[in-house]
């Protein structure tokens, strides 16, 4: 239970950890754009993206194995789409065919590029969650969404809801562990039995957990009232986000990547 969803953050001191979270989000967006701008007929563009990823991993100080673990989650999707593409893509240089199935040179290249794109995408975004605390992420999102305040979109409230939700994930997961242990001590069995029995076995966990969540929500609401929380008006921040020299370097790396990929697309777009 300890490693659910946002237990991803990998504490370390590194260049990437110290970047402004807003820049990291923008960089990720730029990176995704670059991945899909890269020509899908050859590997030059993606090679540039992969190079930036390797740089980022080195400067994040997150163990390589940990970064690669992110791919494991989408491995099935990766293999499945690659296989379909290899068999159905079609093309001129046919290696093998059976009925409508054809394995071609073009198909293999296409599916390899697609798989590579997915892998780069997943690893790079996981790098963001590895090097940024959830709190910093919500802060950054709030700051990036500020322009929406003009159309009266409740940016601050949204960010608050997000950070409360994030804060509660470890609390509730701990609570789940405790309740699960308590019921286990009373002989509850979560491993054996058919699917229906297994689902039913979770009732003694779910009900106390729900009650706990409501109780905590009530308490939090009271605590916020008691400290006169009034929403976004005139609130200042404890931690102000500021750009530093690191962010300028990262900005230029990102800009160079996009320009590079665009240039590759224009001048090196020829198929292999």
């Amino acid at each position: 239970m300890k490693d659910v969803a946002f237990g991803q953050y990998y504490p370390a001191r590194s260049f990437l950890h110290n970047l402004d979270p807003r820049l990291k989000i923008l960089f990720l967006i730029a990176y995704i754009v670059a991945i899909f701008l890269a020509p899908s007929t050859n590997f030059y563009g993606l090679a540039a993206c992969a190079f930036v990823l390797i740089l980022a991993v080195i400067f994040s100080r997150v163990p390589v194995l940990k970064v690669l673990r992110a791919v494991r989650g989408v491995l099935f999707l990766l293999v499945f789409t690659a296989l379909l593409n290899v068999l159905f893509h079609g093309g001129e240089t046919v290696y093998w065919s059976y009925g409508i199935l054809r394995i071609t040179r073009e198909g293999i290249i296409f599916s390899a590029i697609l798989a590579l794109r997915l892998m780069l995408l997943v690893t790079f975004s996981s790098l963001l969650t590895y090097t940024t605390t959830p709190v910093a992420l919500t802060d950054a999102i709030e700051s990036l969404l500020t322009p929406l305040k003009w159309i009266r979109f409740p940016v601050h409230e949204l960010a608050l809801i997000m950070s409360i939700a994030l804060r509660f994930i470890p609390i509730l997961s701990e609570e789940t562990d405790r309740i699960k242990n308590a019921q286990k001590a009373r002989g509850a069995d979560f491993e054996h039995g058919g699917p229906i029995a297994k689902v039913r076995a979770f009732v003694p966990i779910l009900i106390p957990l729900l009650l706990c969540a409501f109780r905590r929500a009530d308490e939090l609401g009271d605590a916020m009232d008691a400290r006169c929380y009034m929403g976004s008006k005139n609130r200042t921040k404890y931690k102000k986000l500021r750009f530093s020299w690191r962010d300028i370097i990262a900005f230029f790396v990102g800009a160079a990547l996009i320009t590079g990929v665009v240039l590759i697309r224009i001048y090196l777009g020829a198929p292999l």
């Binding site: 405790r178 309740i179 242990n181 308590a182 019921q183 001590a185 009373r186 002989g187 509850a188 069995d189 009732v203 003694p204 966990i205 009900i207 106390p208 009650l211 706990c212």
Partner: peptide, 25 residues
Amino acid sequence: MVFQYPEYQLFAETVEKDVAFGLLN
């Protein structure tokens, strides 16, 4: 084993059913 704040592990509709939980398990 009785955990800290064991009252937060109660779940059944009646006291009788809750107490019987361990017995049946």
